[in-house]
Structures are given as structure tokens and as C-alpha cells.
Computed example of a mutant assay.
Amino acid sequence: MSIVLPSPGRRVPCEQCPLRATPHFRAFEPAELKFVSSFKAGELQAETGTTLMSEGTHSAHMYTLLSGWAFRYKSLPDGRRQILNYMLPGDLLGLQGSVIGEMDHSVEALSPVVLCVFQRDRLDELFRNHPGLGFDITWLASREERMLDDHLLSLGRRTAMERAAYLIAFLHQRAAAVGLDGSKQLHIPISQLHVADTLGLSIVHTNKTLRKLADRKLIRWHDRACEVLDVDGLMEIAEWDGLPERKRPLI
């Protein structure tokens, strides 16, 4: 599948960005908002399964996920895949390629997505003239490192059921923070293969593990979606205290 440009009428001005109304994100200073509005080159829309970025490629842009879900992953030559992390609205994509010059991972759309597009060649201007925004980008990179530390701990030391409980609780908390839980039970748009590729388990072991969580009435599995029934119960199994509650930057 390929990325398609939406019609100009569907462009969301930064001043009217729906994410800015979410309490999870810090407010821009007027000068910062003016710069980010000019920094944004447009939007891209992609369907589920679209490769948004490919390992080893160069890009003239970086992106903020405006809506939808995506995931970052690396692959071995024989096609085996390790999912590194999941991207939700407000997350920055492509910073690695913007700074280092080449992507060291790939990104795939987990659902239909809309991306805000930013010009990489103006990144120097952002750091030079808007140090607050420069700090925000550094903060986002540090936050990603912290999440990966937690993921590595889970892969290295938790049991299979603890790993699965941690992953689903983690995704639930991240989605709830940006308002994706709504008034109903949250459906996370992942398949059991995504879970297996995240946890480093076989699909058979993953299926058995998720069935144990379902038997405890903690989750309900649907076709390509996991319904979270008891996030506190998942956190208790994983012995995980959850994500810190604090405002975060939005570029």
C-alpha cells in the first residue's frame, strides 16, 4: 500500500489541532505555535499495513502522528521481525533519520493514520531560534529511550504471561492518555502475531498466554484487536506501576 495525499480541504491547521485540546500535551507559547504552523508542510494519509518508513532509507521529512496507530520494527535477513515500540497520536516519527541521516528501523501503520509532515531541513532553525521546542524534541527522544528500557526489562526478566500483561497495560495507558479509550472498553488494533513479534514468543506460545489472560477476564480477543477489560488486573500480573502522569510536548 502507498501513502496518499489528502485533499487540501482536509488539512488541519496547527492552531486547530485536536491534540492540542488534550490535557496530556503542554501548551505552546505563541511564537512556538507560529513556527510549528510554518514548519508543517502538510499531511499524509495512509491505510493499515502501509510501510511509512523503511530501514536504510533517507527522508527529507519527519512526522507527527495526528491520528491512528503505528509501530516501529527491525527485521532479520530471513524476515523475522522484532517490534520495538508502538506509536500513538502525538508521537514523533523519523527523528532518527533527520539527525543521523538514515533510518535504522522501519515504521508500519497499524490502523488508518494521518501524519503531519515537517521539513527536515528546517530542524536547525528550530533548535537555533526556538530552544524550548529543541528541548521538547530532546525530551521526546529521552522518553522513547525510557520506554525501550522498560520493554527490554520485560523481555529479559518477565514470564510470558507477565510480558503480555505488561504490553497490553502499557498500550492501554498510552491510548487512554491521548483520549482513545472514550466511554467504552478500549480496543487495541493488534493481532496475536504483533504480540508475538513484540514479546519474542512463538505464535503458539502467544496464543496460549493470551488465552490465560482472557480466562481471567482481563482481556477479550477479537479479530485483529484486543479489548481491555481490566487494566488494573493486567498491571498487577506484570507488577508494573504504570506510566508517570505528566504533561508532554507536542510538535
Rank of each mutant, 00 (worst) to 15 (best):
V12K: 06
Q16R: 05
C17A: 09
C17M: 09
L19G: 01
R20T: 13
A21L: 08
T22Y: 02
P23M: 07
P23I: 05
P23G: 11
H24W: 14
F25R: 04
F25M: 05
F28E: 00
E29M: 09
P30E: 09
A31T: 15
E32M: 13
F35N: 03
S37I: 14
G42R: 09
G42A: 06
A46P: 02
E47M: 00
E47C: 00
T48Q: 08
T48L: 03
T51S: 07
T51H: 07
L52W: 03
E55Y: 04
G56E: 02
T57C: 00
H58I: 00
S59E: 12
H61D: 11
M62S: 07
W69F: 13
W69E: 02
A70V: 02
Y73P: 03
Y73F: 15
K74F: 10
S75G: 07
L76Y: 08
G79A: 05
R80D: 07
I83R: 04
L84W: 01
N85P: 03
N85I: 01
M87L: 10
L88N: 09
P89L: 09
D91A: 10
L92Y: 08
L92F: 11
L93R: 13
Q96P: 03
M103I: 00
D104F: 11
D104A: 14
D104P: 02
H105L: 10
H105C: 10
S106I: 05
E108C: 11
A109N: 04
A109D: 03
L110F: 04
S111I: 00
P112Y: 04
V113T: 07
C116F: 01
C116S: 13
V117L: 08
E125W: 10
E125N: 10
E125Q: 15
L126A: 06
N129C: 12
H130K: 12
P131S: 14
G132L: 15
L133P: 15
I137T: 13
I137N: 04
T138E: 05
W139V: 05
L140E: 05
S142C: 08
R143C: 02
R143A: 07
E144H: 08
E145N: 12
R146Q: 13
M147S: 14
D150F: 10
L152H: 15
L153G: 01
